[in-house]
Design a protein around this nucleic acid. Structure first.
Lengths: 137, 137
DNA sequence: ATAACTGTCCTAGTGTCATAGGACAGAGGG
DNA sequence: CCCTCTGTCCTATGACACTAGGACAGTTAT
């Protein structure tokens, strides 16, 4: 598990951590129940204040991605997203529409757009398979 | 052309305008060369300061979506996105990955995700056809 | 020229965000 | 108990984002 902060990206450090944990969860790099790096060591490793990491973890907990047990540590949740199905669908549609509008604006035609999506889905699936075999084999 | 600002969304007003103009351009509601509402009247209509609209338009110009001619007005560009193809592809991939990670996190399975995308693409296409016929017929 | 319109720049106020350090509370090993 | 680890809360500070009003410059019609 390796995080990297891009200090010149303009994106807040704590949000970068949030995104990277989410991505790690999606790719299987982090598995349900697994412990995340504890706040202080990770903060030191990334040259951030502990509260910056704490804020990221708090955000992740509010999203249902992780659970934090004071005194023990933070762990990846079993069941993500406590939201109702219609809400989840609505959120996802917003995200999709944003990508579609960007594709149009970048003049990427529909077929190429779909191809790109399939490509990324495949890439993710491959990552997941790789992590499966690492930890089960 | 109708804009609506959601004041309790937390999203800055000028960004809401940016998104709505981009969406209007993608859906064909706004066509290349067409004039956008001028800054002051639109600001008054939306109960915003002129500079809030001006900032939105400036952002859109920097993105290549519109062109503003001082003294004349703002107009939708012919050719969006002055960026090189690899850059555009990279930007789009970031957006797509974000949607994919969200789909995973919301526990929306791959096929349903693709279905949703197709659905939104179709919806956009229908809008575009509707605007075609309105303005050509 | 005047007036009414267009967008733009400058500057200031206000608030929120991101980050940081100190102190506190629960868990577990000597 | 004592110490060290865990996460959490409170507070403060610095920076930046958003908004706002005044003054300016280009365009067009009268």
């Amino acid at each position: 598990m390796l995080f990297r902060i891009n200090f010149k990206s303009g994106k807040p450090a704590y949000l970068q951590v949030v995104d990277q944990v989410k991505a790690a969860a999606a790719s299987g790099e982090l598995r349900p129940g697994e412990a995340l790096p504890s706040i202080r060591p990770l903060a030191e490793e990334l040259h951030l204040n502990r509260n910056t990491i704490a804020k990221a973890y708090a955000e992740l907990e509010s999203l249902g991605v992780i659970e934090s047990l004071p005194g023990k540590g933070c762990f990846l949740s079993q069941n993500h997203s406590p939201l109702r199905k219609e809400i989840r669908r609505k959120l996802l549609i917003e995200e999709i529409d944003q990508a579609i509008v960007m594709a149009h604006h970048l003049q990427v035609p529909g077929p190429e757009f779909l191809e790109l999506i399939q490509e990324r889905l495949d890439a993710l699936e491959e990552k997941r398979r790789a992590h499966e075999s690492h930890k089960e084999g």
